[in-house]
């Protein structure tokens, strides 16, 4: 059996992903079918951000992954050069 903190972290991840899924689904799928003067539109940013935010988040993520991989490869190569 997983420890308490593991179970807490796993439940947190599941809850986070389901919140994002529900919010984003309402934002992208449901809002076009609701009148534009309905109150629910006050809880969401305008439609362009539904695409811009995930894409910019993905770009930032790829940027940091690239930095991480570069750093790791550079770190694992430098002692070899010293020994040569």
């Amino acid at each position: 059996m997983a420890t308490g903190s593991d179970r807490l972290a796993g439940a947190g991840l599941v809850a986070l992903s389901s919140i994002i899924f529900v919010y984003y689904s309402v934002w992208v799928i449901l809002l076009p079918f609701i009148d534009s003067d309905h109150v629910i539109h006050n809880f969401f940013l305008s439609r362009e951000y539904a695409v811009l935010l995930p894409l910019s988040a993905a770009l930032v993520l790829l940027f940091f992954i690239g930095i991480f991989v570069t750093f790791i490869m550079w770190k694992s190569r430098s002692p070899k050069k010293k020994s040569e």
Partner: peptide
């Protein structure tokens, strides 16, 4: 893409739990 990311995150969380 976002739905796939959510599914992946939820799978990881479930397996951790």
């Amino acid at each position: 893409l976002v739905v796939f990311g959510c599914y992946s995150l939820a799978t990881i969380g479930y397996r951790v739990a």
